[in-house]
Amino acid sequence: MELILTSLLFLALVTTAVAIALVRRLFAVVMLAGVFSLLSAMLFVLMDAVDVAFTEAAVGAGISSVLMLGTIALTARSEKRPTHYSLVPLSIVILTGLVLIYGTLDMPNFGDPMSPVQTHVGPDYIQRTPTDIDVPNIVTAVLASYRGFDTLGEVTVVFTAGLGVVLLISGLGRRIRRSRREDKAPSKGAKN
């Protein structure tokens, strides 16, 4: 059943990607990109990577579609037809894909208990977390306690980025310019 569901989701993913390449109206492309990231989020859930799936849904379907809509409002609503079709980019993409598939051939299978990831430090954390930290979720224990300083740095970076975005889109500069213009306007009128 899991295999059928995964295959169907991958089929839908490929269909969405082809549709994104074919559709010329950019608003439809943004909506299809949102569907693309929802589908990938579902695939992540099927692979038990729930936190990655959550990030993908929040960033891919939420924030980035809004940012792309903002770009559409500033530029154009539909994509121009290409004047010529070149085979070079397509062949480069296919070649890169083949090289990446070749690179996965000697990787351990998905969920293999004997892979290096499962046998290196993982069992140690699984054994020590209940006595060290007493948090039922081991991922949370690693992120918030064993790697606490690292997570603090990450949160600082995300906070700074969010602050920058809020300052950019809240129109602070526009408001300052407008208030300066209003300050200048009466003095001009007085001279005339």
């Binding site: 379907a61 939420g62 903002g70």
Partner: peptide, 12 residues
């Protein structure tokens, strides 16, 4: 997230 995203698109 779905709800907030739709509201953001429509508000935009």
């Amino acid at each position: 997230i779905n709800f907030v995203g739709t509201i953001a698109v429509l508000k935009f």
